[in-house]
Design a protein around this nucleic acid. Sequence first.
RNA 1: GCCGCCUUAGCUCAGUUGGUUAGAGCGCUGGUUUGUGGAACCAGAGGUCCUCAGUUCAAACCUGAGAGGCGGUACCA
Length: 497
Amino acid sequence: MSKKKKIQRPKARRPRGFEDKSADVLRAENRLIQAAFSVYDTHGFEPLQTPAFEYADALGKFLPDDDRPNTGVFALHDDDEQWMALRYDLTAPLARFVAENYNDLPKPYRRYQAGSVWRNEKPGPGRFREFIQCDADSVGAPGAAADAEMIMLAADVMVAAGLDTGQYMVRVNNRKLLDGILESSGVPGTGAGAEQRLQVLRSIDKLDRLGADGVADLLGEGRKDDSGAYTKGANLDASAIKAVLGFTTASDTDRDKTLRTLEALVGASTHGKAGVEELKLIDDILTACDYGPGRVVFDTSIVRGLGYYTGPVFEAELLADIKDRKGRPVRIGSVGGGGRYDGLVSRFMGQAVPATGYSFGVSRFASALSRMGLAETAEQPPVMICVFDKSLLGEYFIMASQLRAANIRCEVFVGNGNVGKQLKYADKRGVKLAVLMGSDEMERGEVTIKDLELGAQMAKAIKTNEEWKSSRPAQKTAARNDIVAAVREMLAGGDII
RNA sequence: GCCGCCUUAGCUCAGUUGGUUAGAGCGCUGGUUUGUGGAACCAGAGGUCCUCAGUUCAAACCUGAGAGGCGGUACCA
């Protein structure tokens, strides 16, 4: 049937959950990373880079009864039959690195790192299978002072990103408090109780979406959602549910007041008391350094879903400029979080190695900043040198390097096509100025500089092609030797005569 | 994993009761204009109608299965 033999072409497509990023997005993300790095660096943290792949057992991702890694990671067999997997966060590789180099590292070891992580999960809006995290961690520091520092770092990153007080909030809680509550409610921290506690954490994490009633169902027998799907509950008894929900709503914007409430709430529990003591120390440091309740609060509804946290936990949240009806800032949501994880490094070592850290999602944070109108995209538009005459290419490249030496972003047209084509290309690129020099100008020692933005405006008033071409709008002639000064002036918006 | 919607050109979409060579707009390439962007006009390229199987003289269209996309939900170390 076929007259024409069909060529089998591959379909140009991306794997789902993986993204191409445009120039604007990349610039915004890189700015954010640089801002965070400079905060970490001035606090004395050291940069570190670890590889994309780790051995799967080092990531701790083997299921108990399975001979291959958890499906949530991208894993492959190395040629020696060992399982390797792409890292799913930067914390597990840090734990491996510290354990591997324990003797050589100063303790506490404080490092920062940004890099891609990969999760083999179903992607959704704003959720990808590859994304960038930016972390800072202290390993080997047991005291709450290290946690207080991480909390202040989180706030400092917000400031470095360009946010003012009132546009962000860091919310702090302590896992030990909930441990105390559950202990008193008869839920042990080991065996079946450990799984139960994890369920409790996940349930509380859904407070903002499901509300207290939905979470109460999840803490009890379970919950059926609108689509008919059933979620198994944590099976707490009624008094335990009441205690947990009571705890999650115990905090107040006044940190002192919250501490007094918590002190009464945890009663005689050792875990609970220790948790309150840690928060007190954190409060002392924050208060001394002027990190007031306008930007850091204690919030008992913050738990973080992860199982490995053992002490203070916190989330950094963006508040939009928009206010709700009661005049409170609207929540955009959490862009980062962290906390103490004292068990992660000791997995490798048989010796206790306390650690605490902060991590934020670069893409999510950067895109939220753009939505708030805080992403400055003032990248200098490029200048383009047109190729009128190929025999003058050397001249064109010399001009370009002169402009670059003056810190002006510029390029010589290297494609094919007459000047008309070149200018169309320039329009599409968002070029602000085009430099024209043919043999005529060359002989006179001149260049012609066109302002494409201004020309585009003037074109609106011009009806015919002839009129357009003969008027040659928005361009001026300058001496070849003055090209840098002339371009600079026109970039600055100088008048064109 | 479960539920719902969707799939025809690079993009957005038409496409008659199942009928012969599948169209439009935008975009792209070339030209009118080999030294000047816009507009206009002319020409051209570009299709496994998601895939496979079935029904039929005949399928983009009907039936079945599968894949992919989107949204919700669960999981998210």
